[in-house]
Structure formats: C-alpha cells, structure tokens
Amino acid sequence: MKSKLVAEHLNLWFGSKQVLKNINIEFEENKVTALIGPSGCGKSTLLRSLNRMHDLYPEARIEGQIKLDGREIYQKDVEVTDLRKRVGMVFQKANPFPKSIYENITYGLKINNLLADKATVQKALEEAYIWEEVKDDLKKPATRLSGGQQQRLCIARAVALRPEIILMDEPCSALDPVSTLKIEELIHHLKKKYTIVIVTHNMQQAQRVADKTVFMYLGEIIEQGDTHQIFNNPQHETTRNYISGHFG
C-alpha cells in the first residue's frame, strides 16, 4: 500500500520544551489512521505538524522531515496555502464561518480561485452527508445548525477544496452519540477518496473507524500497527496498560 504522507525522525519543541520525540510514521493512502494516547501526549501536536499549523507559533521549532508524496513540506519553496489545500483540517469544535451555509462552502473555493457554483456546493454537502438536511436552507446562517450538522458542514467545507488528506482533531468530542455515529459513517465513506488521520480520545471510536492505530505517550510513538492487533494483542506493556484503562 502506498504511503501518502511520511514523518521521519520528527522532533518538535515549543521554546525549550520538547513535545514530539523522534516520530517515525507512514500514513497510507485511502486508509484511516487513529492517533490515541492520554491528554498531553502529543497527538494533536503531531496532527498539526502535518499541514504546518505550527507556522503560526514563532516559538515552535521542528527538526526532521515530513514528506507528502515524497516532497518535504517544510522546504522554503512550499507554499503553505497550497499545502493546506492538499491537507485539509477539521477541528475539535465545529467552527463554521458567520455566513450562510452556501457561503461557508464557497468562501474557501473563491480564495483558492476554484469554481464556486451551486453544483460544487451540492457535491461537497452530499459528500459530507448533509445535503438532504440543508438543501432548502442554503441562505440561512450556518450557526443555526445543530452541533453535529455544523461539524459535517465543516467537513464539507474541507472536502470542497478536493484535498488529498483530511486531518481530524477529535471531531466528535463535543457531539452526542447520534451525531457521532453520523460522523463515523462519514469517515468510512470519505476514505474511499481521501487519506484520513484522526486524533481521538475515544478508544471505541478508534476501533470502529481506523485501519491503523498509533499509541503515543509523552511525545513518543510507543506502538503502531493494525488497529485489531493494537487493541487485541498489543506488544508493549505501556500500550496494554493504557488500553485496559490502568492509566490515561
């Protein structure tokens, strides 16, 4: 299976504090990779390094490499806007723009000089399993949607740009069980077209949606592999303790 995105010997500091330590990982094309581990272990920091979100923080310092289709993304000649078009992001808390549902989808398309017509909007909303719920309300403010609908709208906004990879940072943490199930079904649907990396604190969710699971602890990858193997036959004692609920 082709690796779409690869991190090699990745280290990251915020000021003098090292947050990621010698990370080596490959994200396979059209697979879902879940990052699990206790709070503060570096999951979200790793996720955000994959599309250079840490560029926003002057105290962040990175060593090592992250390669997208073999090209190092931290090279000076890599346009960050182009990178983030290829590597989309869905955040923990739904963050629709204070605009209409329709404008939420077209905004990113316009600033990236992409076609922003109704057919494009409809396709994005269909891919995010929300078109049938909003098709008669496209001019209404996106903020009036329920939490689960807002999160699916944010996913639609991401897929409208036709990324190759979608990063999801605990996308269901603020949602009820029914909305969570819809997002999980959506993830299964989306991986046919996209490579997905999801940070989740919910180990049952990781088992339901992920092909591969990566367990992190204190900024390091302790164990990674097939999700079934990680949860049913972990090789490392720290992984066993975490999965069995003995810490974290």
Results as ranks from 00 to 15, higher is better:
K21S: 09
V80Q: 02
I62V: 14
E29C: 06
V32L: 01
G245R: 01
T227A: 02
E79H: 04
N113G: 13
I221G: 10
E59R: 12
I111R: 11
F27Q: 01
K182H: 10
N113V: 05
P171F: 12
A174D: 06
S173R: 15
L68V: 07
W13C: 04
T239Y: 01
L115M: 14
K110E: 15
S146F: 02
L186N: 13
G219I: 04
L47A: 04
A142S: 10
I73K: 04
G42T: 12
I230E: 00
K192W: 15
E170Y: 14
L10G: 01
Q151G: 01
G108I: 13
A124C: 08
Y129P: 02
G147E: 01
H189K: 15
P58M: 08
W13D: 05
Q207A: 10
I165M: 10
T33C: 04
P171L: 14
V209A: 06
I66P: 10
N11K: 09
C154Y: 04
N202T: 05
R144A: 04
V19I: 11
P96G: 09
R52N: 08
K2T: 13
Y74S: 07
S100Y: 01
G219L: 05
V78T: 05
K118A: 13
S173C: 14
E132W: 05
V78N: 01
N51W: 14
Q235V: 02
L35C: 12
Q235T: 03
K93S: 11
T81P: 07
L125H: 14
R84I: 01
D55I: 07
